[in-house]
Design a protein around this nucleic acid. Structure first.
Length: 463
RNA sequence: GGCGACGUACCCAAGUGGUUUAAGGGAUCGGUUUGCAAAACCGCUAUUCGUCAGUUCGAAUCUGACCGUCGCCUCCA
C-alpha cells in the first residue's frame, strides 16, 4: 500500500514512487520582506506535515526550500540599498524561523537564499539563451521565450498559442517580444540603487522564477520527486519553473506537483495586499495556543480552503483537547512508559488505520475520524477498567508515533515550582481527609495561573 | 471575458454509483458518573446531500441547465 498524492500535473491521485532510494522534495519558501502571516504558514505547515508523514513511512527525505531575498518589494522597502537589504532579509528570515519553530515546523535540510546563488542563475540563463529559449533585450534584460517551449501551459492548462501570436505589447519598464514572456534577468533600474549584480548582459538582478530552477537543480538535480507550493504559485511561477528547467536540462523536472490551498479570512484569501492578514503572534495574543493553531491548519484537507475565524479555532481547540485529555489518561495509566518495538507499534490497529487514511492523499478528516473512533473505544474500556498496563504502553507508543506526524498532541511540560508541588501534596492530603474546601481552594489557585487539575482514577492530571 | 475549485445538519467536515435510511469533530439540550469539578460515557440534533431536469433496477456520488461562493489569469503561500 503506497501513498497517493494528487498531482496537479495529471489532475489525478498518483502513487508516490521514489525515483531513487530517497525522496527529493522542493518547496517554495518565504519572501523575506515582512513578517510572514498565518496564511503563509498554512503552506509551510503542510510541507512539514508531508515531510513528517514521509518519514513516518520510513522514507529518507531530502527537503529543500528556497528563501526569496531579492525582488521588487524588497528593493522598494530597503530603498535600493544593499546594506539595508542584507539587514532586512536577515531580520525577516529570523522572524520566519521563530514562528516556524513555534508551530513545530522542522526546517528543511537545505534552505538556500536566492542572492547566494546568482552565479547558478546566470549559468542557467546563459544555457537558455544558447539553446534559443531566451533572448536579451536592448536594455540588458533577458526574457524567456514561451513560444520556444511547446508544453508551456502544461501545468496551468492554459493555451497560450493563440494569445502570444497576436499581441506585441510593450511593457513600460522592460521590453519583451510577447506579453507572456517572463523575465529571467532584469536590467538595473534607477530605483535599484546599489542592489545589482554583474552579468554577461550588464548589471541587473535575477527574475523571481529562475531562482527556484537554479536552486532545485543545484541541490536536488534535474529530476526530483515532489514539488510543492501554495496554489497561487501554480501560475505563473511553477509554470515558468517547468519551462526554464525542462528547456535547460531536457529532463522532466518534478514528477509530482502538490499544491496547498489558501487560508481564507471572512471568506476571502488572506494576503498582504488585501491587508486582511494576521501573524502567528496576533492569533496567539487572541488566546489560542500554538498547538491549537497547528491543529487548525492541518485538520482539514490541504487541498481545500479553510476559513480562519473564532468559531473554527475554538472548535479545533476543543477537538484537540479531547485528544490530549485521552493522551493524558493513557499517560497516567502507563506511567509514561513506552513500548519500544517499532514493528509492534506499526502493527497496532490504530496505526494501520491511520496509515490507510493518510495514504489517501493525506486525508486528514479520515485520519482524525480513525483517531476519534479509537479514543471512544478505549475510553469505554478505561471506564470499565478493562485496560491493562501492557495495552496502555502500546497505546501511548502509538499515539506518540502519530504525534511525530501531527505535532500537536504533546504540549510543552508544565513547570511546577517547589511551592506548587507542596500545594499539590497538600491538596492530595486534603482530599484524603475530605477537606473539600481546602482542596477546591488550591485547585482554584492553580486555575487562576492557567493550570487545570483533574482528579482521574489513576491520579491527578495537571494540564 | 478565459481557466479552475467548491456548495453535505446550528458550525467545520468525510463520503464521488448499492454494506451510507450519510463517518468524525465542535456546539446545544437532557441523562449516567463524580465530594464538587474536569474528563469520560449514554441519548437527542440531515428520510437528506444548492435548485431543477435527466441517465440508471438504484445517485450526495454520473449528465445537463440554473443559482450561489471563492480562487487564478499582475506580486502572492
Amino acid at each position: 500500500m503506497t501513498l497517493k498524492l494528487y498531482n496537479s500535473l495529471s489532475k489525478k491521485k498518483e502513487d508516490l514512487k521514489p525515483l531513487k532510494n530517497k525522496i527529493k522534495m522542493y518547496s517554495c519558501g518565504p519572501t523575506v520582506y515582512d513578517n510572514p502571516h498565518i496564511g503563509n504558514f498554512r503552506s509551510f505547515v503542510f510541507f512539514d506535515l508531508l515531510k513528517k508523514y514521509l518519514n513516518f513511512l520510513n522514507f529518507d527525505v531530502q527537503h529543500v526550500m528556497n528563501v526569496t531575498d531579492i525582488d521588487d518589494k524588497i528593493i522598494n522597502k530597503c530603498c535600493g540599498k544593499i546594506k539595508n537589504l542584507e539587514l532586512m532579509t536577515k531580520k525577516y528570515f529570523e522572524s520566519f524561523k521563530n514562528d516556524a519553530n513555534k508551530l513545530k515546523i522542522d526546517l528543511p535540510n537545505q534552505v538556500p537564499f536566492a542572492t547566494d546563488h546568482i552565479d547558478e542563475m546566470i549559468n542557467l540563463i546563459e544555457k537558455l539563451i544558447l539553446k534559443g529559449h531566451a533572448y536579451k533585450t536592448e536594455d540588458g534584460s533577458v526574457f524567456f521565450k514561451i513560444d520556444s517551449f511547446k508544453n508551456y501551459g502544461m501545468l496551468s492548462k492554459i493555451d497560450f498559442s493563440q494569445l502570444s501570436k497576436t499581441d506585441r505589447i510593450k511593457n513600460d519598464e522592460y521590453d519583451k517580444n510577447s506579453i507572456n514572456d517572463f523575465a529571467l534577468w532584469k536590467s538595473r533600474k534607477v530605483n535599484d540603487g546599489d542592489i545589482f549584480w554583474n552579468s554577461p548582459w550588464g548589471n541587473g538582478r535575477p527574475g523571481w522564477h529562475i531562482e527556484c530552477s537554479a536552486m532545485s537543480l543545484k541541490y536536488l538535480g534535474a529530476q526530483f520527486d515532489i514539488h510543492c507550493g501554495g496554489i497561487d504559485l501554480l501560475f505563473p511561477h511553477h509554470e515558468n519553473e517547468i519551462a526554464q528547467s525542462v528547456c535547460a536540462t531536457n529532463k522532466t523536472f518534478a514528477k509530482l506537483w502538490v499544491h496547498c490551498e489558501h487560508l481564507l479570512i471572512n471568506g476571502s484569501k488572506m494576503s498582504k495586499s488585501l491587508n486582511n492578514f494576521y501573524t502567528l503572534n496576533d492569533i496567539i495574543k487572541k488566546g489560542y495556543n500554538v498547538n491549537t493553531i497547528r491543529f487548525f491548519l492541518i485538520s482539514s484537507s490541504y487541498s481545500h480552503k479553510i476559513d480562519l475565524n473564532d468559531v473554527n479555532l475554538n472548535s479545533s481547540n476543543s477537538a484537540l483537547k479531547r485528544i490530549q485529555d485521552f493522551y493524558n489518561r493513557i499517560f497516567e495509566l502507563s506511567k509514561g512508559d513506552v513500548e519500544i518495538d517499532d514493528n509492534k507499534i506499526m502493527n497496532t490497529q490504530l496505526i494501520v488505520d491511520f496509515k490507510i487514511a493518510m495514504n489517501d492523499n493525506l486525508n486528514m478528516s479520515k485520519a482524525l475520524s480513525v483517531i476519534f473512533n479509537y479514543i471512544k473505544k478505549i475510553n469505554i474500556k478505561l471506564d470499565k477498567k478493562q485496560m491493562t498496563y501492557k495495552e496502555s504502553i502500546l497505546t501511548l507508543a502509538a499515539l506518540n508515533k502519530i504525534d511525530e506526524v501531527l505535532g500537536v498532541i504533546r504540549s510543552s511540560e508544565i513547570k511546577l515550582s517547589k511551592n506548587d508541588k507542596k500545594l499539590i501534596e497538600e491538596r492530595n492530603l486534603a482530599r484524603k481527609n475530605k477537606n473539600w474546601d481546602r482542596a477546591d481552594e488550591i485547585r482554584l489557585f492553580f486555575k487562576k495561573k492557567g493550570i487545570d487539575i483533574d482528579d482521574s482514577e489513576a491520579g491527578i492530571i495537571i494540564k
